[in-house]
Every structure is written in structure tokens, then in C-alpha cells.
Amino acid sequence: MGTQVGTQTIKFDNMPKIVSHAAIVGPKEGEGPLASYFDQILEDVLWGEDSWEKAESKILKEAVLMSIKKASLNLSDIRYIFSGDLLSQLIGTSFALRPLGVPFFGVYGACSTMGESLILAAMTVEAGFADYCLATTSSHFCGAEKQFRFPLEYGSQRPPTSTWTVTGSGAVIVSKIGTGPKITYAIPGKIVDLGAMDPMDMGAVMAPAAADTIVSFFKDTGKQPSDLDLIATGDLGKYGSKLLIELVKKEGYDLTSNYIDCGMEIFDSESQNTLAGGSGCGCSAVTLAGYILEKMEDKEINKLLFVPTGAMLSTVSSNEGESIPGIAHGVVLEN
């Protein structure tokens, strides 16, 4: 059963496997460069519901059911679901899972939630408490705008560092047996705050957290970036990625050759007007559950460090003049 490595890394000995993955996205994501990797692309953001929140719940629920179906499992095979979202009190998730009757742990890691739920699912399976766990998360552009910014129809201008919340949900099933990419390491993230204040520049908020997690992994394990095929952060965007590369370089590691950011992959920021890139829990979740895991199945990527990033702010903390803490959880997947 797993071992502790260095100061914060977990090494899995039984190596839980990701046996299934599903990603459902909104129409804008469906027009982006990764469109062909998603299981389902919605025609409209409401998907027949009458509110953004209900639509998000439906997207998450359907992604969960789809991942179960793709693995030819039954709902009853899933022992626990680990999930969270951006809406207050996790209503996106808990209302989605309401009809399913599966034991549920609600987790909040802002946009890093996919990493957190994946780590907890892997630890639970590794420890023998479950044969199958499901890790998932979701976000919805309109719901996030309503909660964190302005009403959708309000005519405001976005600065170039702002990002576009992804509408979508990614779900993966972590299993003790079966075939699929193995989870070999997990690096639970620390809260890192270097004093960034601007909620319109989340990349700058989260880059230090991502750097901390990535550097901790290399220090804990003695590995180098070149030991991996790909390092993928969640939603640092165009400018946050640059900051990350610089921060990691200061610690003596070079990310320039095999690093991507999910937020920069999911949209074509020029033609889709997403400025610094995509963001939200769904961003890293659908990029993992769609694009990356597909690439791993095709053996184009064999060793991945997946580092979803989150900004732990609320509208209250920003109004009260607090700086914004960031967090990033790392998971290593290997074929």
C-alpha cells in the first residue's frame, strides 16, 4: 500500500488504473481545437434546462453515467464518487448526484478539483476501501460568470489576462483492476499565496502554486522534467504559463520542451476570443478525460504529470481586500 516520498508526494504501489473516462462539453468548447476528443458536444449551454446551475448538474450527471457505461459497469459498482464544482455549496455536483444513490464526497479545490478528486479516488482504491471510485468535476461559463463576475448580458470589458470558464464535465473511473493508465504518484498541493490580488489575472495567482507542486514532485522523487512525456497544468493560460516556466526555472528545472496548459489547448484564443485561455474546473477535467487520456490510450503520451490549478477566492474575500491564494494538485499517470 502506497508510500510517502519526500515531503508531500505519495507513491502508489498497487497503482490504481483509470479504466474509463468521459467528457461532455458546451458548444464553444466544441468549436475549439480539441473538439474531436470529446464524447459529447452540446448544442446549447442550457441543454433543455431552465437555469445555468441545472444545466451544469445535468452535464456532470451525464458525464458520470457515460463514464460508467463506457466501462461496461453498473452504477452500483461505483463505491464512492469524489466531485466538486464552482457553485456555492457545490450545488452543481450534489444536485447532479442526487438521483444516483452513490456515496459521495464533495471536494472543493476551485479549478484544481479534478486533481483533488482524482487523488482521493486513487488513495481510496489503493487502500482497499473501494474497487471502483469515480472522480469528476464540472464548470459552466454562465454559472461562473453569474457567481464570480457580472450577469451575462452586462456590457463589461475583459482585460487580456482574463480567462473563459469552460462549460463541461469530465469523469474518470479509478479501479483496482482492469486496463488503463496507472496512477503512480500523487502530489497533494499546498495553499500558496504570493500576494496576487487581481481576480482578472488568475494565471498569476495560480502559477506559484503550480510551480510549488511541480518542484516538490521533482525534489521528492529525484525525477527530472525529461523523465515525463508531458506536464499539463490546468488553467494558467497564456501568461500564467510563462510565469510558471520562469518560477520552475529558478528552482533549476526546465519545462520548455514538454509542457502544455489545458487552458491554452482547449480554445483557439485568437479566433474564439478567450483572451488568456480557458479556465474552470471543467477545463482540466475535459482536457484530461477527453484529449489527454485518449492520447495515452494511443501511446502517444506514456508518462504524464497532470497539475490542475485552482484559485481559492470568493467574491467576499476579494471585496474585503484579501490576496488570492492558489493551489495545485499533481497526479502522475503512466502507461
Binding site: Q157, P159, P160, T161, D201, A204, Y239, L243, E246
Partner: peptide, 9 residues
């Protein structure tokens, strides 16, 4: 570092 990296409107 952020000032140098993040573009201003």
C-alpha cells in the same frame, strides 16, 4: 515578474 509578464489593457 507578473508586471513584466501580464499585458496591460
Amino acid at each position: 515578474m507578473v508586471q513584466n509578464t501580464s499585458p496591460k489593457p
